[in-house]
Design a binder for these strands. Structure first.
Lengths: 257, 257
DNA sequence: TACAACCCTGACGTTCCGTCAGAGCAAGGG
DNA sequence: CCCTTGCTCTGACGGAACGTCAGGGTTGTA
């Protein structure tokens, strides 16, 4: 039977020795045996448990939660592992897509240094898209405000557009990374809020208009249904947006070196 | 110019009020103005900055790093993207490894389930544990004796296992009850001796095999010093021992009581 | 004017480790 | 057999990024 010292296990699992000590102290992962000199030794099952721990840690569970999960009465390792495997697979696929996108983006950024027509100004949000948003906003809230906003938008500088596009891109990318996460999740909430804060910024809407938005997305129960629907089509939407981003993204918005 | 109170900004951005306080304290995001009553007020630019902060935070940057990024002379988006890509790549690789491990594990677990009944035989000590002990014993002492012992062990009846388990349980319980008692105490000595006699019993080892371990703990004067030193940690040690005992009890696991 | 709902400033608590310090083992070489 | 090198141990303190009171003002509204 294989046994690992602290350092060996640490290296295998990619954590620090201190982490293993810590896990031992809080009873999360104890060595399978100890030396006369109290040296720690871990077996295969500890390695597996550590993997599970790290897995849940990736999902942002606290260590005590992890302990409850792993040591809970109804914990069927096979079942749990199969569920996790599915999650992992999805994550891996998403990561893969993200990686490709980023590669594309980097190539684009490196290649097409300076080339930006007026049309490209609209970048992350196509004219039609912007109009679509405007349309919806018009339907939903105050038409005058929206028209006003659009008028403002047209006066925006290139710089502002760049910044705004970049932000939308960021938000979308992160939302994509969270695909499959429950809507109630704090991260999703935060991102959605940011997304709408972005829209708010985009349209330079007044607070009272924003109240409706905020409520819809953050407090209103309708938000749930809306986002469910939204999420279903999110992948396509994002791919389009990302492609647009790659094709339209002009050279660096700069600062520093 | 639109102004937000702490709570308003917090809600919009999906962070806590305390977080805004904190960011103010460390100089990462300061309110654009303050009341006579020192109430904080944030403007549009603070909202934007906060969103940038949150973006980098999602990427696991520390707050001081974020400050350096945002307040620094400038930064290169390509560079940032490439760094980000590296991070994602590592993550993807780890995910991949995890997936493989999980697949292996699932297969293993499914396979082993069938053989569970066999494992039940081992009672207080899991098969691996038993084998681990055996392995060590084999290394340390006479291989033939160990094999012999194992052969014997396999013929033990459930009744015998129960009895043996009960004894270990009893010993540990009494040791726990004596926690804090000086090592020199006759009772402690007796129990420690019984503990090792239990191991002895388990392997049905001969006295000479036991020499390496038993003498060190019970007769050798070095033991005295050693144990004195570790007496402070005795509680932990015992708890660990007891936990190990519980963890390895298969079928009808009794975890905690 | 009362009262809920905000806001303030300390200041201590928490999680998850990083990082010494002071010491003990393990093993190969001289 | 000693020496050196490389692990390992146990505290104990530190620190990042807040959470969570306590104790006490402020504001808007009924």
């Amino acid at each position: 039977m294989k046994e690992y010292t602290v350092q060996q296990l640490a290296k295998i699992a990619g954590v620090s020795v201190r982490t293993l000590h810590h896990y031992g102290h809080i009873g999360l992962l104890k060595p399978s045996s100890r030396n006369v000199a109290r040296y720690r030794f871990y077996g295969e099952s500890e390695l597996l448990r550590l993997q599970q721990i790290l897995f849940f840690k990736e999902l942002d569970f606290g260590l005590d939660d992890i302990a409850r999960i792993l040591d809970g009465p109804g914990f069927d390792p096979v079942e749990a592992l199969e569920a996790h495997r599915e999650q992992l697979k999805k994550r891996a696929e998403r990561l893969d897509a993200l990686l490709k996108t980023i590669d594309k983006t980097i190539r684009k950024l490196k290649g097409e240094k300076i080339k930006m027509s007026d049309e490209e100004l609209y970048g992350g949000l196509s004219k039609e898209q912007a109009n679509a948003y405007a349309e919806e906003a018009r339907r939903r809230w105050d038409p005058k405000l929206v028209d006003n906003a659009n008028a403002n938008v047209k006066k925006w500088s290139k710089e502002k557009w760049k910044a705004v596009n970049a932000e939308l891109d960021e938000i979308l990318r992160q939302l994509a990374a969270l695909m499959g996460t429950p809507v109630e999740d704090r991260k999703v909430q935060a991102l959605v809020t940011r997304h709408y804060a972005y829209l708010n910024n985009f349209y330079e809407v007044k607070p009272n208009m924003y109240r409706g938005l905020g409520k819809l997305y953050v407090e209103d129960p309708r938000f749930r249904a809306y986002f469910e629907k939204y999420r279903a089509g999110l992948a396509d939407y994002l791919n389009e947006a990302i492609d647009r981003y790659c094709d339209n993204t002009p050279a660096g918005k700069k600062r520093r070196g």
